[in-house]
Nucleic acid binder design. Structure first.
Length: 274
DNA sequence: CGGGCGGCCTGGAGGC
DNA sequence: TGCCTCCAGGCCGCCC
């Protein structure tokens, strides 16, 4: 389940191994993803071009080429992007792979096909339909409780839905929304517009903390990941509420509850989240 | 237009 | 043991 931290770790892991490489060949084996893979466009934008940088925006990994084009990868729910030897066999559920100068191959596989791979002109990316409406980066310096409070004014949606809406703030999935709200003592069903400025500050800090911790955890198994085992350390994170229905809250001892919100499991502590 | 919800997709878990 | 159902969830599109 790749969320912002896993994409960030993936970016850091791949960066030293991709920068300076040239894509020599693109093999598409299964076009069906969230949107069909456009092989012709990929080849036009990426083939025989040198990789000059990697970036992350929301849960998208961006690979920039000399000459002003960008390869965009979204892992969806089950996507994996791994480096393998050039001549290794395709992996199960592989969609496409990129043969690189220097003897490696970048492989993308995604059993559930919620992922997305496409390329575009770098300068036009900000106006692309996938990026145009994206909200703030929670790890950017300008992210703050004030920013969230302004956005949330008079909004009646539950704060958890507000946090998971990428038009407000990006990168927060179901797990981290639950965890950040627990850390800040806010009930997930509380209306976003009815949270005080002070509590928005606490929540903004908790979001940065929980995402930062997850990135650090991912970093501990960076080597496994780089070896292509696909293990980012994601599952090693200590979760306080997510998946702990019926178990005692570590802070107050009350039993963790699970309720469905917008068809998603929502975990919270009835004792310390008000 | 904000908010809610269903659909996409498949592997794995759990029930009978 | 094997089959069936359900659930996981990011994102989009539809509906009210």
């Amino acid at each position: 389940m790749p969320e912002l931290p896993e994409v960030e770790v993936l970016k850091k892991t791949l960066e030293p191994r991709l920068i300076g490489r040239v894509i020599r060949r693109i093999d598409v084996v299964e076009r069906r993803l969230r949107e069909p893979v456009n092989a012709a466009r990929l080849r036009r934008d990426c083939l025989e071009r040198r990789i000059v940088g990697l970036r992350r925006r929301a849960k998208y990994l961006l690979i920039d080429f000399r000459g002003g084009t960008t390869l965009v990868v979204h892992l969806g729910m089950s996507g994996r992007l791994t480096l393998a030897p050039q001549r290794s066999a395709p992996e199960p559920h592989e969609h496409l792979s990129f043969a690189l100068s220097g003897g490696a191959r970048l492989r993308f596989r995604d059993p559930r096909r919620f992922g997305l791979v496409f390329s575009a002109n770098t300068k036009r990316l900000a106006n692309d339909k996938h990026f145009r409406l994206l909200g703030s980066e929670p790890l950017a310096p300008d992210f703050s409780g004030d920013l969230l409070a302004d956005l949330a004014e008079s909004r009646t949606a539950p704060v958890k839905s507000f946090l998971m809406d990428g038009r407000n703030v990006v990168g927060i999935g179901n797990i981290y929304a639950c965890e950040a709200l627990h850390r800040s003592g806010i009930h997930p069903f509380r209306k976003a517009g009815r949270i005080s400025a002070k509590r928005w500050d606490v929540l903004a800090a908790a979001i940065r903390e929980v995402l930062g911790d997850a990135i650090e955890q991912g970093g501990t198994t960076l080597n496994d990941f780089a070896d292509g085992e696909g293990n980012s350390g994601y599952f090693q994170i200590d979760l306080a509420v997510y998946g702990r229905e019926g178990q005692p809250c570590w802070r107050c001892g009350r039993s963790i509850r699970r309720r469905v919100l917008s068809n998603r499991s929502t975990f919270y502590c009835p004792g310390c989240q008000r």
